[in-house]
Simulated assay, not measured.
Amino acid sequence: MTSDVPVDPTITDAFRQMSALIYAGADAGSIHQSLVDSALQLVEGCDRASLLVRTRDRYVTAASTDDIARRIDQIELEIGEGPCVDAIVSEAYQHDADLTDAKTPWPRFTERIVAETPVRSAIGYRLLLEGDKVGALNLFSDTPGGLTSTSADLGAVIASFASVALMAIRAREEAATLRQGLTSNREIGKAVGLLMAAHHISGQEAFELLRSTSQELNMKLAHVASQVIQGQESQFGPAGPAGGAKADSQV
């Protein structure tokens, strides 16, 4: 069964472009910026947008359409209240259609925003990644009542897409970390083998030599291993010291 409700081709095209960015391997920054730019383009009444993302134990603005949107994120994080901050910890999105209304649930936030920015309406959407709260998509309007219930519904769709995009970014980063780890392990193993052959020591002794050197030089173990490999290859070539040892035994 298909819906008779027509789909705005602008919306379809925007989601297609965002999907293309993700699957083309665009960097995280480009994807983040595309999300807020799409919100600005697609959501009626939206004049600005930002994306808060958790980095380690704090939230940072990963992308914004302008400095005002970024400043609003900073204000919310400073005072610890507002639609975007509450959206991260709550089950539903947070919508204040008119920040000039005295009945706002965020009096300190509203006072700062009205005094320091032209924004008069805001919506915050929680972003989830495998059940974990990882950030918020934030929409702002300079007009009281500018972000309507219709705006909020479309923003929720974009926020859902944003969660999928963050999932794709995390999966890509995890894959890159795994590849880096495998490369490092191969280099460490090769360095251990070269040290064993060069100094006639056991594998455990060779590894301990690498580890102690790493600690003494305050360098990562993989970097020390890489230096060992480069040093050995500069002296003996890619074959390592084994070839030299064999030649000596035939003398």
Rank of each mutant, 00 (worst) to 15 (best):
S50V: 06
T104W: 07
A171T: 12
D98I: 04
P144E: 04
V60S: 13
Q41S: 11
P9R: 00
R58K: 11
G45F: 05
I79Y: 01
K220W: 06
V7D: 08
E208F: 03
I11A: 09
T65M: 14
S234G: 01
F161R: 15
P6H: 01
E187M: 15
R186W: 10
L137D: 06
I68S: 00
A20T: 03
G244N: 06
G124L: 13
A24Y: 00
R120F: 00
G25R: 14
G45D: 05
D98C: 02
S50N: 15
I22R: 09
G193Y: 12
R56H: 08
S50M: 07
A136T: 12
H95E: 00
E78I: 00
Q74P: 02
N138D: 12
A165H: 15
S214W: 01
V114W: 03
S234K: 03
D153H: 03
G29K: 08
V251W: 12
A165P: 13
I113V: 15
R58C: 06
T10A: 15
F109T: 02
H199P: 00
M219W: 13
L217M: 13
L166M: 10
S34N: 03
V7G: 04
L77D: 00
G145K: 10
V157N: 06
V5L: 14
S184G: 13
S64H: 12
C84N: 08
L217H: 01
S212L: 02
T110D: 07
I79P: 13
I22H: 05
S19T: 09
R186L: 15
G80T: 02
I31M: 09
L129P: 05
Y125V: 01
H95W: 13
P9I: 04
S214Y: 08
D98F: 04
T2I: 05
F161Q: 11
T104H: 06
D66H: 02
L51A: 12
T213E: 06
R56T: 04
A122G: 13
A39S: 14
D132C: 04
V114S: 01
E76L: 09
P107W: 00
E130M: 06
N218C: 09
I72T: 11
M196W: 02
V251Y: 11
G240N: 02
I188V: 13
V119T: 04
I169E: 11
I31L: 06
Q94T: 10
F15I: 04
F140T: 00
I79N: 02
D96S: 05
R108Q: 05
T148S: 15
L210N: 04
G25V: 10
L210C: 08
D47V: 09
Q235H: 08
P241N: 04
K220D: 13
R179E: 08
D27S: 07
K133F: 02
D37V: 10
G45A: 09
D142T: 14
